[in-house]
Design a protein around this nucleic acid. Sequence first.
DNA 1: GCCTATAGTGTCAAAAAGGATACTGTCAGA
DNA 2: TCTGACAGTATCCTTTTTGACACTATAGGC
Lengths: 118, 118
Amino acid sequence: MVKARHSRLDCTPGCAVEAAVSLIDGKWKAVILYHLLDGPIRFNALRRMVGGITQRMLTNQLRELEADGLIHREVFAQVPPRVDYSLSDRGLSLSPIIMALKDWGEANMDLFGRRLAA
Amino acid sequence: MVKARHSRLDCTPGCAVEAAVSLIDGKWKAVILYHLLDGPIRFNALRRMVGGITQRMLTNQLRELEADGLIHREVFAQVPPRVDYSLSDRGLSLSPIIMALKDWGEANMDLFGRRLAA
DNA sequence: GCCTATAGTGTCAAAAAGGATACTGTCAGA
DNA sequence: TCTGACAGTATCCTTTTTGACACTATAGGC
């Protein structure tokens, strides 16, 4: 039951674009999805991969992605807790977007201060 | 001379993704770029196409896109003023991203309240 | 003479996003 | 016994983004 976090779309042309960006905007979501492309991953592992994100933000973003039906959250009843995050089918269908972003970013690193090391 | 609006990229993997989204995030930029794919367009025509954007926001977003080297701004010395906006080569190279967003958005309109009319 | 369109700018305020820090409970290892 | 890892919460605060509204100058049409 996806809640209507995304309203106000009366759908001019270009609305589809707006709808899609609304799911991956913010500083972190696209990066999170990118790392999830490699397969299921635990909360703290993801946190280390993303780098620079606080626990609070990571939790927030993951919850929103889950609410939008893009990722799955699986809790293991273990005692050092374990939670795996993975892409749903819908999330996986975003991969053309994510990869396009990555390719463009790599090809245009010169726009930014530092260059990709290797 | 592109200014360093985009700093802090010490480049973990996934940084390319972060860099790319930083250029098209916000509620409007991707939509603006999408409409620019159809060719040069005047300020107010763009405003009408985007729909719901204020003058101030449109101006802001266009200036940022220009600063990032994604669009050109051509001023005609006429007296009802005329300014055309168009994609630069670099902006045009974003089209895979924009089209991927559009395609995904159209394919997943069911996530959002209303459906694309036709 | 008045209204409209053009492409903006300036100011103020509200809302959203993001960040810092401290806290939870349990178990394994030193 | 003390510490760290795990996956978070809760609270507070700052920064950024977005929106509302008013204002500019000039030319053409009525």
